[in-house]
Every structure is written in C-alpha cells, then in structure tokens.
Design a protein around this nucleic acid. Structure first.
Lengths: 343, 343
DNA sequence: TTGTACGCGTTATCAA
DNA sequence: TTGATAACGCGTACAA
C-alpha cells in the first residue's frame, strides 16, 4: 500500500498505549478494559486501520494464499474451474494467485518458483501439454508441500488428483453413438502426454468392443493441436480419401467436434442423418450450434471447488496426502443433442 | 512455505558468516570476497535457498502483486483480458491476485478490502453491474492508490480508463446493417448502469440518424440479464406481436444475438435473407454458428495488456494519474459474417 | 571485506 | 489490565 496506511503503532501513539494492547483490543482478547477496547476500535475506525496481511504472513509463516497454475484461462473449461477455485478459496479466507503456463513447461516451472517465493500455502495444478517429467512437483511433494492436481493428473505415486471420469464419459459417448446405429466411428484423439487423452481413447475402444464392433486403429486420428482448423482439415481429408467413409465422429474435445461438423457440412453430409458427432467438455456454444452438438459435460466448477477444499484441508489440518484418498473422480454427464440423435 | 525452507541465516550458520554478508554475496554487491561469494552461492544452491518475497514485501512496503477484480472469469471476453494482464504482469515481475465480483457490489468491496490488506501495489478493475456508487474507489484514488479501470469505466473524474470504442463499434455495426438494406433495426440493449451500454446505444441511434432512418424508441429492447433465454424470449414476442416486424437485430453482446438468431429460427425467419443480426464482442463461437454471426470484435488481450502496462508504470514511476492521459480507447473491428450479409 | 544493529507490522510470552 | 521484548526474513547504514 502507498503512503500513510495506518498501523497498530499509529493507534498506540494516538492513545498513549502500547502496540500489544492495541493488538489485543482489536482481536477481542480477554482481559482488556472494555473502555480501552472501545477507544481503540474507535481510533482504528477513524484512522481507517487495516491489518497488514504481509506482516501476518511473515510472522505466522502462512500467507493464506494458494497458487493456481493452468494452461490457459481463455478456455471455457479452465475458466469454469477457476471460478470454482475462487469461490471456495474466498469463502475460506484465501487469496488466489493465478498463472498460466500457456502449455509451456518452462513457464510452469518458473511460475512454481515465484509462487514458492511468495510463500503460498499450497498449489493447484493442471500441468501443460509439454510437461513430461514431474520433478518440479515431486521435489515439493517429498517435502510435504501441499499440491492438488486437477483435470490433468500426472503419473506421480501418492499425488492427489481431482478429475472427471474421462474413461466413462468417453465410453458413454461412444456407446450412445453405437445405439443410434452409427457403425464406423472415428475418434479424434488428444495428445498422448495427457492422461485424459489416453483415458478417453480407452473408453472409446472399450465401448466399441463391448458392443461387438471391431476396433480399427486407422479410425483413431490424432489431433495434437486441438484447433478447429486442424480437425476440419483432417476430417475433410478423411471424407474424401478414406476407403470406408466413417459415419460418426467422437472428438476428445468440443472444438474438434465443431471442426468435424464443418468438414461434414463442407462435404454436403447431413448431421445427424448421415453422420453423428459428439464432443467432449460441453462448452457453452454446444447448444448454440445448428444442429446442437451433443457433448460430454464436465463439472468444471465442482472440480475447482472440490480440489480447493481438499487443498485447504491439507493445509489447515496438516493432513498427510499419503494417508488420504488419492483420487477424486467426478462424474461426467452425456448431453444428448441433435448432432447425434437419429431416432 | 512449509517446514524447512532455507533462509539466509541457515547459509550464514553453515559458513560461519553473518547474515548481511550472505545477503550481499547473493546480490553481487561490490566489496565482497570472490571466494566468499562463490561459497555462499554454492551453499545457497545446496540448501535450495529461495528468497522470501513476503519478508521483502514487508521491508520495502511493496508486494510486487497487483489485484484484478472482474465480474466473472467464465466469460470469454474477461478471460481474454485476464490473459493479457497475466502476460504483462508476469513479464514485469508482478504476481496477479484474482477475484470475481460475480456482479455483486458487496463482493467487489470486500475484494478490494482483502487485497488492500495484502498490500497489493495497485489494482485493475472492471466493476459489477450492481455498482452505482464509487466511493470504495474514489476514497483510494484520493490517497493516490493506483487503480486502472478497464472495459467498464466509472464516472469518476480523474480515473484512468482503458476501454474499447464502444460508440464507434456500435455505429459501425448499425451502419453496416443499414448498408445491407435493413431498415427496421432493433437494438438489444444492456444495463444502463454500464457506460458501455449507453455508448453502444448512442452509437446505434446516431448511425440510424446519420443514415436518414428515423429512430424509434420502441426499437430499443432492454436485456438487463444478458442471457440467451432472455433475448430469445423477448425477440420471440417481438416477432409475433410487433405491429411493424423488425428486420434486423443489433445486440450489445453476442449471447443476445444468438438468442435473437434462435428466436428467428423458431419463427421460421431466414437469416440473413429476411433478418440481419450482428452481435458485440466476437466470442469464439461466432464463427461456429450457422449462419456465422457477424460481430464487433473487441481486443481483450490488448486491453488487459495495456491496462497492466499503465498500472505498473504508475506504480513504478510514481506517476500522478491526474497528470496523465485519462482514457485509452482501443479500436474495435467489425467482423462481417453471414448473419448480416445480404449481398 | 565483514559484522552489528535496526526496522518493516504483527503477535506470543513473560513480566509488571 | 497493560507493557516490554523478541521473533518472523531481509536489507542497509554504520561501525569495525
């Protein structure tokens, strides 16, 4: 704060009392003269006194601040999660320091560093697509520093993760497509570095098998970038060149699904009549499209809220993550809309 | 940080030196034995020393942290702004503390309070729809506390604002509709508490007049909530009950435009043939819709970046806002797409 | 070239 | 019921 923010000492001087008395009076400690207390509070009010959280942090070695590292805020899902984080953190008296990695490992690492310098009490992380090794996290976990991972869960034994049931969501989506009579279902897959990508792929494959459809590896199309143009291009090629033209697309995220939808439109294929499409994440725009896009809804707000609750519990109760439930899995919900409904 | 974070004292003890020597060695002060310096850095490395930013903050009365208060993160435009803020703040060595007001005045006020307690060096604000009085800001401005407002600019003399040219954007959008031959253009307006709403309304009205169309007050439909359902319902009623059925809708935000689009579809009206539609903000989904939605694009990232630069300049150069350019206006860009293109 | 002492704002501890 | 002192981690004026 700038010049002239009143401190306890200012109040003390004004009333000819000691700093400790002021401190106690303000915090309603027992054994303080009621009259003194009244006067102290009055002057505090007058001087517009505001406790200095920094001084408190230094003294208590606790900052009541948690860090959040996400790939990008400009991402409907992540912004939803942040919203949940913010909500819970606030209501429990914590500040939220936010940084984006922009999917870069080095930014993730340097963010972690500055946050630690700032004495955060714990951190919530969804790691970047570039991140393939996790020493920058394990080092801290070994020192019992509280970390909770969300959505993107690393392969670290003993780490706490909050995620959605990507496997089941994917399984449901694929089964739904099959139930609607689609038979040649392509999966637009995400980067293999993310566990969620692998889980979604697995759910897709298992759903095929359990429904008696044979799995064709050529039907898995990697979309590492996750842009609309990417999937639109890939699906466009597919439609024109593939020996057996696919009749459905299950994308590991909504953007990819929109790309597929556009490619189909480009090719004059009718959705859902000739081609079924399902996305993943249930972004806001799904119900604005024509036809409305079916998608697997992920509880982003809840994820952020739960992860934060767990983190703060660890911080405050000094829980040992090793003795806790390691993974909280939230349920997804398939939102069936027009893009995949034949009957 | 938890137990066992090494401090300068730990290094001092290990090397039988005084804390001040360590401090100087680490910061490459002149007049320190090279050999000592080497050893200090070595031990620092070994103990995984990390400066305590909290202690620094307390000492310098500077936290290198800026606060951000926005209505909601789950809002494409705001998340874009936050992204710009984050980027610049980070590169200039500042942390970002984020809070959402959720469009509530009391949350806005309490956010401000906790942030001040946390000794932020300055704050970036986009105030809530509920905010009608600004004492909680003016009080601080009077004490020279650095505040930069973005997007939603309050009627505070001397305050620094970064915003887009809402008037011009709106004027352009309306003119465009007129140029496409639409004549009965309805404006879906935002809440009057926001200057941006008023500016957009003004731009609409002026464009009508300057193009020789008479302005009909009944053609301004307030959409205070800004939800899809709201505008869909309102436009639906309009279509059925209005004596002179409108042939175009210019909405003060994209969601409203989508609502209008849906209402038209419900009523069997063809966009853009029978009805033209233009939104404001150019959210991601605009180009995913069918027909693609024309919209006024706002440079969110730039807005965040610029606002942050200005704020940090004020903080670091101790500039007096009163002597500065008060308002930075960024240009909008009309993205003409299918929803308003007749020719 | 290095050490001592003090202060940033607060509170816990011990003494009065 | 109140006050004095020390400590959280760091930087710096001053002394050695």
């Amino acid at each position: 704060m700038k010049l002239g923010q009143a401190t306890i000492k200012d109040i003390a001087r004004e009333l000819n009392l000691s700093a400790s008395t002021i401190s106690r009076a303000l915090k309603d400690y027992p054994g303080i003269n009621d009259e003194t207390k009244r006067k102290v509070k009055e002057v505090a009010e007058k001087l517009n006194y505001r406790p200095n959280a920094i001084a408190l942090s230094l003294r208590q070695s606790r900052s009541f601040t948690i860090g959040v590292i996400i790939p990008e805020v400009v991402h409907f899902f992540f912004s939803t999660v942040v919203s949940g984080i913010e909500e819970v953190a606030n209501s429990r008296g914590y500040n939220v320091i936010l940084t984006q990695s922009n999917e870069k490992l080095d930014r993730e690492i340097s963010s972690m560093e500055t946050m630690l310098s700032n004495q955060i009490d714990g951190v919530l992380v969804s790691y970047s697509k570039e991140t393939k090794t996790f020493e920058h996290f394990t080092k801290l976990l070994d020192h019992n520093f509280p970390i909770v991972f969300f959505d993107r869960a690393p392969a670290i034994p003993g780490a706490i993760n909050v995620m959605v049931d990507d496997y089941q969501g994917s399984f449901d989506a694929t089964s739904h497509l099959i139930s609607q009579g689609y038979k040649k279902i392509v999966h637009l897959a995400g980067p293999k570095t993310l566990k969620i990508s692998k889980d979604r792929e697995k759910g897709y494959m298992d759903a095929l098998e359990q429904n008696g459809l044979k799995f064709n590896p050529d039907y898995i199309i990697p979309c590492p970038m996750g842009t609309l143009e990417e999937s639109r291009g890939l699906v466009g090629n597919l439609i024109n060149s593939f020996p057996e033209r696919p009749d459905a697309y299950f994308s590991c995220h909504d953007i990819g699904a929109v790309g597929a939808m556009m490619a189909c439109r480009d090719a004059g294929l009718k959705v859902p009549l000739e081609v079924g499409i399902v996305g993943f994440s249930d972004w806001q725009f799904c119900s604005m499209l024509e036809p409305q896009l079916s998608s697997v809804s992920q509880p982003g707000f809840t994820m952020g809220a739960k992860a934060t609750e767990i983190l703060i519990d660890i911080i405050e109760k000094k829980l040992d993550p090793k003795t806790m439930e390691q993974t909280l899995i939230l349920e997804t919900k398939l939102m069936v809309r027009d893009s995949s409904k034949r009957f």
